Simulated scan of single mutants.
Amino acid sequence: MKKAESIIVGISIGDLNGIGSEVVLKTFEDTRMLELCTPVIFANVKILSFIKKTMNSELPLHGIDRLDQLVVGKVNVLNVWKEAVDIQFGQLSDEVGAYAIKSFKAATEALKKNEIDALVTAPINKYNIQSEGFAFPGHTDYLDKELKGDALMLMVHDQLRVGLMTDHVPVNEVSKHLTEARVIQKIETIYHTLKQDFRINRPKIAVLGLNPHAGDNGVIGKEDQEILKPAIKKMFDKGILAFGPYSADGFFGSGQHEKFDAVIASYHDQGLIPFKTLSFGQGVNYTAGLDKIRTSPDHGTAFEIAGKNQADASSFKEAVYKAIDIYGARQEFQEWSKNPLKIKEKQLESKKGA
């Protein structure tokens, strides 16, 4: 396994008119972060130096033109482009959106080639990134196309994990996307993720119903009875501890989520509203189900405070921590797959030491 400081975390810069650059720089002003990983920011060192000045930051940046020039223990900035970019904090700009995607695509390519160990993405604006070369709602959809696996948005904060059955789908189209095959696929993805990336040997998974009161036995919609319930039973019969569908309205308020290792919501706001209520500013968006690691903060570009040095870097820092932790968990899982007895011995030793 790699030494901590040798874990290479790639960072896509996001929308330069938003708070992305600010939270990235603030994260690595804490020099202890460089003991855990070596960051490489996919952007342009002159632009980041300009943004650094607006923040009165003294963070040293190491500009490079190729990844083989990367220096362990420094904040590396890979020059993905050389030209100047007109930065107007808080403004929506198609030009700036294009540079956000240029950074993201370069970082994704490095991830595919194993030139970086994990990717952390700063926030983009979903409107100004749209172009002929990028017709995706966001990061997750592009990664699903470029990387192996089945991408699933999993929001994480401490022991709270909320996954989405459907993510960036209009509410009036959610039921069209909800099929038994999709439910089975998402449960299996979460199950494997919890074992591989979160060190949970026998995870318990709750599935939230689509309709009010989980359909009230078909009185308020039939999807819960005809799609969700049979799929959940098939998973349970297969040995996966999946339960539900549960009525979503009181699930989090009553603390039921604390009994499970993950919760799968049927649609975006059903999962994101309670998650952000319970964890806002500390949560991490993890793209589960892929052969590579990608995390991001749980917030957007925050144009209203961009350039004012007011952004809280907590969520971005948590995203870096989570990427590093998942990288370690995957290394352990791969080792365990080769030699389960060896890992069991290590776990027993650590318990004795505690």
Rank of each mutant, 00 (worst) to 15 (best):
E349T: 13
T189Y: 06
L25K: 02
V9G: 08
G14T: 00
A265M: 01
E226M: 11
G239P: 04
I240C: 04
G149W: 04
M235F: 00
K112H: 12
L92V: 07
D141P: 07
I124Q: 05
E115S: 11
L59C: 06
F243Y: 14
A311T: 01
N125S: 10
Y321P: 05
N114A: 13
A100T: 01
D197L: 01
E173K: 14
E22M: 05
D197K: 02
A100K: 02
I101G: 05
K102R: 15
K82T: 10
S350M: 15
Q91K: 15
Y99N: 04
A319E: 04
K53R: 15
N309A: 09
T301N: 07
L92M: 15
E115T: 05
E115F: 13
I232V: 00
I116W: 10
K3T: 12
L70A: 04
I41Q: 05
W81Y: 11
K338D: 14
N114Y: 14
L164D: 03
K308P: 09
F280D: 08
V320P: 10
T108D: 11
V120T: 00
L36S: 09
Q91T: 11
D167F: 10
I41P: 11
I129S: 05
I232S: 03
E258M: 14
T277S: 14
K346G: 09
E83K: 08
V24D: 08
H168T: 01
P274E: 04
Y321W: 11
D141N: 09
A151Y: 06
G328E: 14
Y191V: 01
N79F: 14
R294K: 10
I13L: 13
S49H: 08
K176P: 07
G73S: 06
K195N: 01
S131H: 09
K74N: 13
G90F: 12
V23Y: 12
S57K: 07
E180D: 09
L67W: 08
E223P: 09
A329T: 02
I8T: 09
K82Q: 15
A98S: 15
K229S: 10
